[in-house]
Design a protein around this nucleic acid. Structure first.
Lengths: 157, 157
DNA sequence: ATAAATAGTTGTATTATACAACTATGACGG
DNA sequence: CCGTCATAGTTGTATAATACAACTATTTAT
C-alpha cells in the first residue's frame, strides 16, 4: 500500500466516523429530551461532582461560547446548577441537581444499551486492542489537525 | 474490566471521535471555499466519474434533503454538473466540471498534508492494524445504532 | 497603578441535519 | 391499460452545533 493509498484509507475512515458520530448524536434525542452534547456535559459534571465552565470548555474542546450555549438549556431545565466560584469571581461552578442526577441515570440506562450493543459487535478477543487502536487514531488525527492549524496560522502571519 | 467499564470507554472514544470529526470539518474551510461535506461529494463523484444523487444519499448516509442541500451549492459554484438520467426520468447524474476537477486536485493536495500527518502519527508497524480496528469500531457502532433504531421504532408502534 | 490575561456571555452567522409534504416518474399487479 | 405503490428529488420548516468577534468583569503580572 502506497503513501497515497494510506491517505485515502484514512479519509474513508474519517468519513465513516462522521456518519457514526451522527448516528450517536441522533440516538440521544428520544431520551429525556437531552441532546448528545448536553449529555456529555451532564456526564462530565456527574463524574467529577462539580466542574467549572472552563473545564467543560477544555474537555469538550469547543469554543467558550459553545460551552455557554450547551450549558444554558441544562440550567433552564434545572438539570444543572451554576454557582459563582469562591476563589475566582469570574469562574462558575457547575453541579447536577437531584433532577439532573436522575436524568443522568435514565440516560445512562438508555445509552448503555447502545454501548453494550457496540461492545457485542466487537469480538471479545479484539476489544481491548480495538479500543486502543481507536484511541491511537483519535490522538493521531487530533495532533495532525493541531499541527496543520499552527502551520496555517503561521503561513497567514 | 467490567461490562460497564467497557461502556464508559466506548462512550469516551465516541466523544473523542466527535472532537476529531470536528477538527477535520474545520480544516477544510480554508481550502477552496468548500466545506468538508461538499468535498466528500466532490471526491465521491471524482472517484466514480459520475454518480446519481441517490448514490450520494446512500454513500454519505444522510437524508435525501440533506443531499440536495449539499450538492446545490456545488452546482451553483459550477464545480458539479447535473444531468437527467437517460434511463430514469426521476434520477439525476452528477459529474465534475473541469473546474470541479481542478478544485478536487487542489483540495486533495491540501487534505493530503493532513492525512499524511495523521499517518505519521501512527507507528508504521501499527498502521494496518489501526485502520482495521477503526473500521471494525465504525461498523460496530453503525450496526448497534441501526439495531437500536429498529428497536425504538418497534416499541413506538 | 496599569496592562495583560482569563472567564464567561452575547451578537452574528454558517453549516449540517432531519422530518414532513410535495411533484414527477417508474414498477407492479390485477 | 389502469390504479396503486415505490422511488427520486426538492422545498418548507425547524433544531442543533459551532465559531469568530466584541464585550464586561475579575485576576494576574509588571
Amino acid at each position: 500500500m502506497t503513501v497515497n493509498d494510506d491517505g485515502r484509507e484514512i479519509l474513508t475512515l474519517i468519513s465513516d466516523l462522521c456518519q457514526v458520530v451522527r448516528c450517536c448524536r441522533q440516538d440521544s434525542v428520544f431520551c429525556a429530551d437531552v441532546t448528545f452534547n448536553q449529555f456529555l456535559v451532564i456526564d462530565a459534571v456527574y463524574q467529577q461532582g462539580s466542574l467549572k465552565m472552563s473545564d467543560i470548555h477544555r474537555k469538550l474542546a469547543v469554543d467558550k461560547s459553545t460551552t455557554s450555549r450547551v450549558v444554558h438549556p441544562l440550567v433552564r431545565k434545572k438539570l444543572v446548577k451554576r454557582e459563582k466560584s469562591n476563589h475566582d469571581g469570574r469562574s462558575i461552578n457547575l453541579s447536577l441537581t437531584e433532577k439532573g442526577k436522575e436524568t443522568h441515570k435514565r440516560i445512562w440506562e438508555c445509552i448503555s444499551d447502545l454501548l453494550q450493543a457496540v461492545r457485542k459487535e466487537i469480538p471479545e478477543e479484539e476489544r481491548h486492542q480495538t479500543y486502543q487502536a481507536v484511541g491511537l487514531f483519535n490522538a493521531a488525527v487530533r495532533k495532525a489537525s493541531q499541527m496543520q492549524k499552527l502551520t496555517s496560522e503561521s503561513i497567514r502571519k
